[in-house]
């Protein structure tokens, strides 16, 4: 199977290449990137063929592509890949507007290619164990959920994350989608209502929000919160956290998906003090699932709809913060 990487704008692309290279029968045919400095650097450090244009990569007729461009370019790039007949794994958020996301769905359906949204946390064994625990009824009726996906400001890795024109939003759009997707997947319900505070308390140099706190009501009545802030300082020992506490009538489950780490102090490393994870990368399982669906021509385990609904929760947070009243994400059309 021949897979191409459509843009290295998103920093996850680097990990995805490693994930793909661990899967037998997969050939990473190269990557396209229109940024010459990044193209040269990635080409050298990963030993990958570099295409100056996305058309050049797609002309090689890859079986599938990973779209890891800036959020605002997903629509155009997914449409190009679909027209070229390549199955797509698209980085989250699938888009920054409802219109873009719907246009992507249309392009995908017209060409008949498969589309998977990159939600790696569904493939974390700890998250899967939590889901099993909830669904088996072990915790009893779920009473409340507290979720945290806060991080450092990603702009020091890639500037566009904090540029409104390319990212479409800041912390709230970047991080809400992970937990919103896990809530939909674990509790098998839609998000009914979103109340939120969205602001930029941390970085006056950027034109996007750097903090977002969401208070949701899931459709089945469960109250659930999401902390989507870029509230960790740059010298924090790791990029951030994915945490969730599920309070049930019979028991409580406490998830800290990246808890498995060594404490490491090193000279000359990126961080003087670092939490170095020792568990397998959830993105590996995600990539294997994507490759399997391309190979078997089966429905990917995470769909466009999943990506769309999670995005609508984030967009509802912006709307709710602005209006000062709760917003139903499904009212955004």
């Amino acid at each position: 199977m021949r897979i191409g990487i459509l843009s290295f704008a998103h920093l996850h692309a680097e990990g995805y290449v490693q994930n793909l290279r661990r899967i037998s029968g997969v050939e990473v045919i190269g990557f396209s990137d229109t940024d010459p400095e990044r193209g040269r650097r990635i080409s050298q450090s990963f030993g990958l063929r570099w295409f100056w244009t996305h058309e050049g990569l797609l002309a090689e007729a890859p079986d599938a592509v990973i779209v890891t461009s800036e959020n605002a370019h997903h629509r155009e790039h997914v449409a190009m890949a679909a027209a070229a007949g390549a199955d797509v794994l698209c980085e989250k958020p699938v888009a920054a507007t409802v219109a873009d996301a719907l246009a992507m769905q249309e392009a995908v359906e017209r060409s008949g290619v498969r589309f998977m949204t990159a939600f790696p946390m569904r493939f974390s064994p700890a998250v899967q164990a939590l889901r099993d625990m909830v669904r088996s009824g072990e915790l009893g009726r779920v009473l409340a959920v507290v979720g945290v996906n806060h991080s450092e400001n990603p702009k020091r890795h890639r500037a566009w994350f904090a540029q409104k024109a390319l990212a479409g939003g800041g912390a709230t759009l970047d991080h809400t989608v992970h937990l919103a997707d896990l809530y939909r997947w674990i509790f098998e319900t839609e998000v009914g209502e979103v109340a939120a505070e969205v602001a930029n308390p941390f970085d006056p140099e950027v034109n996007v929000d750097t903090a977002g706190l969401l208070l949701l009501r899931l459709e089945n009545g469960i109250p659930a919160s999401i902390d989507a802030s870029w509230s960790r300082p740059n010298h924090y020992p790791r990029w951030g956290h994915v945490k969730m506490e599920v309070v049930g009538e019979r028991g409580t489950a406490i998830l800290d998906a990246f808890a498995g780490h060594l404490h490491v102090w090193r000279k000359g490393a990126g961080r003087d003090y670092e939490w170095l994870g020792y568990h397998s990368d959830p993105a590996q399982g995600m990539m294997e699932a994507f490759v399997r669906s391309v190979r078997d021509q089966s429905e990917p385990p995470v769909t466009w709809r999943d990506g769309f609904e999670a995005m609508r929760v984030a967009l509802a947070a912006y709307r709710a913060a602005e209006a000062g009243v709760p917003v139903d994400p499904r009212s955004l059309v």
Binding site: A129, L130, M133, A253, I254, D256
Partner: peptide, 14 residues
């Protein structure tokens, strides 16, 4: 390098 089993696990229950 430090590590201890006292560190919280990825999934704990009460």
């Amino acid at each position: 390098v430090e590590w201890s089993s006292d560190q919280p696990p990825p999934l704990a229950t009460l």
